[in-house]
Structure formats: structure tokens, C-alpha cells
Amino acid sequence: MTEHLQEHGQETHSIGYGRYALIWVGLMGLTGATVALAGIQLGRWVIITALTIASIKGLLVLNIFMHMRFEDKVFRLFTLVAGVVLMIFLVLTFFDYAFR
């Protein structure tokens, strides 16, 4: 019975083994993709594609492995704020350096 409840993951937000494995396959695939893409001369797009793939991987780990998807709204908002603050640091720093 408890096994059955947890299968649906409502109470403990326990995620099945299969789903984790699937995410892992995705992460490995993205790693392969980012290495393969780095071999191609894409000029200034190199950094953009690399960071986009890294962000997707980071979000997969955060949302599934770290269960962020199943946390409540307020808490997810806090995490978002932490991420946004970091982005503000980066962007403001570049306003300084890019226009010197």
C-alpha cells in the first residue's frame, strides 16, 4: 500500500528509478553534444551554445535530482531570486567593463 502511494509520489515526492535513469541518459547526451559542438568552429556562438547546454543540464539536475519541481511555490521563487541576483551581478559588471 505504501509502495503504491509512493509510486504516485504525492506525499514524499519520491521519484521512480526509471525517471532518474532517463534524466541521466539525457545529461550524458548533452555532455556528448557540448563536447562535439566545441570541436566545430562556431566563432562567437561557441560560448553561447556551451552555456545554453550547461544551463539545461543544471536545470535538469536542479529540477529532478534536487526535486525542485516538487517544492512549493514560495520556495521555488526564492531559488529563482538567488539565480536572478547572480545574473544581475554578471550583467552589471559587464555594463561597467563593456563601456569603458
Binding site: 521512480g16 528509478y17 529532478i64
Partner: peptide, 16 residues
């Protein structure tokens, strides 16, 4: 990445 998978699985295992 694989170690992240195994630690996530260990949590599911203990929950079950």
C-alpha cells in the same frame, strides 16, 4: 553526473 544519479537513486531506495 553518474554519481549524482546514484545519490538520487539512494534517496528513492531509502524512501521505499
Amino acid at each position: 553526473l553518474t554519481s549524482s544519479l546514484t545519490v538520487a537513486l539512494s534517496l528513492t531506495a531509502i524512501q521505499r
